[in-house]
Design a protein around this nucleic acid. Structure first.
Lengths: 211, 211
DNA sequence: ATGTTTTTGTTAATTATAGCACTATCTTAA
DNA sequence: TTAAGATAGTGCTATAATTAACAAAAACAT
């Protein structure tokens, strides 16, 4: 399997395909096709085949794809055939929402530790995980060999938290703070900025014609 | 100003630039350059100039950009020189987090109504907005001329909510439910899928070499 | 004044991504 | 057994986006 450059858009679509296939599988459907997948997720059939072709041949010409097989293949491609240890930093409203998000556990993301700077929150339990003070972050994250950090702290605190996560050995960070973070190139970073998302909408609704 | 096609990536970056410029402005800095902006947000200077060039000439050669001016220009481009009426549907943990998110109000997004299907939540107040039952959605959204809907309901309920939002006249939808939604082409739709974001990370950390 | 430096706006080149059309292969039915 | 229909895989083409290079213009120093 050659390791040519895969577009990020392809990875995002694979993730959506796998979710769609999970639904299809639950309905008891055995076989599907690029056309059906395309209809289900709103892309072109060619796009579906192209995305899969980066990783191998998973279907049968004239027949289509076995739903369970293809789903498993995609999960493996995405690195979801194993569980991931995740730490959550920041237990504001957003952190709380993330901690209880069912979708994470279903996909193999296990929140193994939670941290907050507020002494009033430290010691409380979220699910069955106790909220710990920030000064234990490095120790605990190292101990758990946690690979992923979710940052849900105020913008002003985010860079410092990220630095601590990195020196504790996390490999990837999902950042919800509305700030540009500096991380070394070997660390995977993704930003989810809620306001940015709304602003893309307003541009398309109004801006496109208004400027 | 010609209305050529603007890449979505450009819009996302403009939003980030404007946030950066807000910070720079708060520090009392008067003038900046494409290089400084680029450093601040982690892109190339050429990219910054190219993005701005879609919309006009905002700088002075040999000098740079006036921070306040450029910020205002970008806000206007993004459609943020006016307030937007937003409705929030779904008051689970995520909905709660979104309702209290400061960043929205700061950028001119005003949550004018909140809905939930759970009778226990209906009637409670979030901030100074009362949670209303879903069956009042169309009436209230029409009355307020609400332009944007935020969907934070379970996946199974999302399509029905979206249909109601559209028939109530919203023009844009920000969807947090992990499901592919069908909307007519004139409706702007953006999906924020938290699991997808994590999966892009795991692919890059492990998948890239593991498949 | 004039040349040097800075930094923009713009054009050109490169790279990346998506779409299309064709080929190969499988199933089914006559 | 063979022909017809379906559908995956793939190479080519077209489109889009990013990067790089360069020309225009302003400020500054001599």
């Amino acid at each position: 399997m050659k390791t040519l450059k895969i577009p990020e858009a392809t990875i995002i679509r694979l993730s959506v395909y796998s979710r769609h296939l999970t639904d299809v599988d639950r309905k008891g459907i055995i076989t599907t096709s690029s056309g059906e997948i395309a209809d289900g997720v709103g892309v072109s059939p060619a796009q579906v085949r192209k995305d899969l072709a980066y990783f191998g041949e998973f279907g049968t010409r004239g027949v289509g794809y076995n739903v369970k097989d293809l789903r498993q293949h995609i999960l493996r491609i995405l690195g979801l055939s194993v569980n991931w240890s995740v730490t959550l930093v920041g237990v504001g409203n957003l952190g709380l929402a993330l901690s209880s998000y069912k979708g994470f556990r279903e996909r193999g993301f296990v929140i193994t530790s939670i941290f907050d700077a507020d002494p009033k929150k430290v010691g409380t339990k979220i699910g069955n995980v106790e909220v710990l003070p920030i000064d234990q972050l490095e120790t605990v994250v190292k101990l758990n060999r946690t690979q992923i950090g979710i940052v849900a702290v105020p913008a002003a605190a985010a860079q410092e938290i990220v630095d601590q996560l990195i020196s504790a050995g996390v490999e990837a960070i999902l950042n919800f703070a509305p700030v540009v973070l500096n991380v070394p190139p070997e660390i995977e970073l993704r930003n989810v900025d809620l306001a940015v998302n709304l602003e893309v909408l307003t541009f398309n609704v109004c801006g496109q014609k208004c400027y």
